[in-house]
Amino acid sequence: MLRKYSNTRSLGDNIKLGVLTAIVAGMVNVASFMLFYSFSSNVTGYFAILASEVSQNNYYQIAIVLLWIMSFFFGSFISNFIVIHFNRRNTYLAHAMPIILELFCILGVAIYGTRFYNGTLFETELMLMILLLSMGLQNGLTASISNFAVKTTHLTGATTDLAIVFSMFTHKKYRNNKAIKDKAKLLISIFSSYLLGAFIAAFLYSSMKFNVFFIVVAFLTVVIFYDLSKIYRFNRSLKIYRAQKKDATETTNSIESKSKHIAIS
């Protein structure tokens, strides 16, 4: 899910990544709306709000909205920066690092929210900024490693893509096109996962409040360790294979030397 890059990724890799990160995005967005009365997984609305605040000369709100947009931007920037600069050294680590940073951001919000949050405006704005940063990190990573096929923090583009795909299915020529079918599968899984995450957060919010973010952290941990376990298993198999090969070579050599010895004597 995280190990492969761009065109080497299979549909399965993209679906797995899309499903898990869309659940995370749906949960974070709904939880932040219920806790802070502002969304945290997309910035389209904030551009409209920014324009509205500018027209009303609300300098404080302009600054806050600007910082929120910049947080999302900065998150996506860092993600792609890490991917393109460290991809050759260690692909898995380069792809996992943005998710690890995202995990720490959300974990920070969860811990602060459950233990120290007093409900002040400053805390609210700061935590929203951190959540937007984390969503930027996530979106930057998924878009970057999937060649822009997977974007899970907002559904505007996905809605357009899905509408286009569905309209293409109305034409005989495209109905059995594998690439279009695969695209539809990916988009539908992202949609349903985002909604599932949103429902989970909405359902759990009343009893769990900030603890919802700990569940988000659990999902992110799965994303990180899923590939790590595969790498571990692969390395172990490789080790076993090499050891077996070495044993086989040694056995062959010893048989050969024994047969030579017998032949000489």
Partner: peptide, 16 residues
């Protein structure tokens, strides 16, 4: 961008 945002925050005090 950060300087502009912080300057704007400083210009108007907290709504609270």
């Amino acid at each position: 961008i950060s300087v502009i945002a912080l300057a704007l925050i400083g210009k108007k005090y907290n709504p609270e």
